[in-house]
């Protein structure tokens, strides 16, 4: 148990160990601990932020779905309306077309009838004149009685 040079040796090695620990052991480990502490804090903050974002997104999605549903219903409504309009329109078109065709046919029929009647009248007049002239060959001068024959033909 002598106090001797060992004292100074121990003092020096103590100083070296403390210096080494401070420089190469404590500082890096403490740095890592601080970094981790910060990372955890950041992570927690990010998680909280994410949760908040998710809630907002949910809200937004709900809104979007609601809006989309409304739009879809509106589009279906419009389509149905348009379809019935088209049906009505085509019905109307068909009706007017048929009427038009009918009218044209009737007009043609009338025209034909009139023409036939005119022809008939002409032929009857000629036949009458021919008959009359055959009957009255001698007594009647075709030229002299032309106006009477004409009158007759007119009356038919």
């Amino acid at each position: 148990m002598n106090i001797n040079l060992t004292l100074i040796g121990q003092l020096l090695s103590f100083a070296v160990f403390v210096w080494f620990t401070m420089k190469f052991v404590w500082t890096p480990i403490m740095g890592a601990l601080d970094t981790r502490r910060k990372e955890i804090a950041d992570g927690l903050a990010a998680a909280e932020h994410g949760q908040h974002e998710q809630e907002l997104a949910k809200e937004r999605a709900k809104e979007a779905i609601h809006e989309a549903k409304g739009q879809a219903a509106e589009i279906i409504n419009q389509a149905q309306k348009r379809a019935s309009e088209i049906v009505d329109e085509s019905k109307g078109n068909a009706r007017s077309e048929s009427e038009r065709i009918l009218a044209a046919a009737q007009a043609e029929i009338e025209q034909e009838t009139n023409r036939a009647r005119e022809q008939l009248r002409q032929q009857v007049a000629e036949l009458a004149v021919l008959g009359a002239s055959k009957i009255l060959r001698k007594e009647i001068n075709a030229a002299a009685h032309k106006d009477i024959v004409e009158q007759l033909a007119q009356q038919i």
Binding site: T21, F24, V25, T27, P28, I29, A32, L33, R36, E39
Partner: peptide, 18 residues
């Protein structure tokens, strides 16, 4: 003391915040 700083340095060199 050498053992201590050896292991201390070993940890400090590989230390990560993970």
């Amino acid at each position: 003391g050498g053992l201590f700083i050896y292991f201390g340095k070993k940890v400090a060199d590989r230390v990560s915040s993970g």
